[in-house]
Design a protein around this nucleic acid. Structure first.
Lengths: 192, 192
DNA sequence: ACATTTATATACCGATCGGTATATAAGTCA
DNA sequence: TGACTTATATACCGATCGGTATATAAATGT
């Protein structure tokens, strides 16, 4: 197993503490003490507290966007591709609870909040997967034309809500629950 | 016009600052200076920084739950009542951006977060309006039986997503957009 | 008019914040 | 082996944190 560097351990420690208690509520002193190093080490690797958060999100989104890229091939079956994307998204969140909590925390901030701008480019790339999905589906589903952005935003909203319920242990992550979620989104509440 | 007390002005100032930058990132010094009083005044009225946040949420939810109470009478028409509740919820959020931002920020926190427990009782009362709606609809819509909790959570998730888009200026609040949102939730994406 | 209660201010507290100056250790390269 | 680069630690910085001790002002009640 690869030897864990101080840099890696600092980032993972910060992810855990920031997720559990919020970025502003956790001090640099607590992060370095928990990681077992000192402040100059953190500042050497990340430059600042803000730089540490930037690195956390860069890593999180790089992986998440790669996973969604793998799951996004559309072949004419909207339900199937949507299930693939949704499964990939929820599975990733379940396996990366700390950074997913942070992602949600940032997603539900006012635009004016200093930290919200950190994830704006990532959030746009994330949204684009779902926009592309609906855009690709327009030939078979003409009524979706012109609604791609709104649909992408609303589906992401549904997924993010599911993520917080999942991470807080209020719903399970099963093939069946994904199926229900996707079908309800596509066909409404009467398919239950 | 009623004379504004220092207590009122402190609470409103804190709502604005906490919403814009986050509870932990705003200090008591900034709140009292912006409000034009001194710390002992704040501590006299609210007891602590935490007590100030408690008072903010108590006020916010008291009004919100009252508004939802007024909008919740079910008369057999699920679409109609859902539209009433959704309109009340979104209209209230639009008119109370600051405390609604705070509500969202608290809603998307891990259960372990110290501040998340502040709104747990309120969140349960809020959810209950939607649980009651779906419960009341079961006689006409038998397939909803047994799904009331999950439906309530998912509808609230859809609404909260809409709230953040609304507050961040990404979608308008119109009768038509509410109609689309509710119909899509009930009947799926093909009603668009 | 005085006592009591409510509400406010000044000055201060110990603790912690994000970050840096300086020094040293460890690893790499020629 | 020495020079250079990378990575770490100790000690410290000015600023701010949440909160309080003490005093005074304003409002209310008798």
């Amino acid at each position: 197993m690869e030897h864990e560097t101080n840099k890696d351990r600092l980032r993972q420690t910060a992810e855990r503490l920031f997720a559990a208690r919020g970025y502003d509520a956790v001090g640099i002193r607590e992060v370095v003490e928990t990681a077992g190093v000192t402040k100059p080490t953190l500042y050497y690797h990340f430059g600042s507290k803000q730089g540490l958060l930037d690195a956390i999100f860069a890593g999180h989104y790089q992986q998440l966007l790669a996973v969604l890229g793998d799951a996004s091939g559309y072949d004419g079956d909207l339900l199937k591709t949507m299930k693939q994307l949704v499964t990939a998204y929820l599975t990733y969140a379940g396996a990366h609870a700390d950074t997913s909590y942070l992602q949600l925390a940032m997603t539900y901030l006012p635009i004016s909040h200093g930290s919200a701008s950190i994830i704006t480019p990532y959030a746009q790339q994330l949204q684009q997967f779902f926009v592309d999905l609906f855009t690709a589906a327009v030939p078979e589903h003409g009524n979706l034309r012109g609604h791609e952005q709104v649909l992408a935003l609303s589906l992401l909203g549904v997924l993010n809500n599911h993520v917080i319920l999942l991470l807080n242990g209020k719903v399970p992550l099963t093939e069946q629950s994904v199926e229900s979620l996707v079908k309800q989104y596509m066909y409404g509440i009467y398919v239950l």
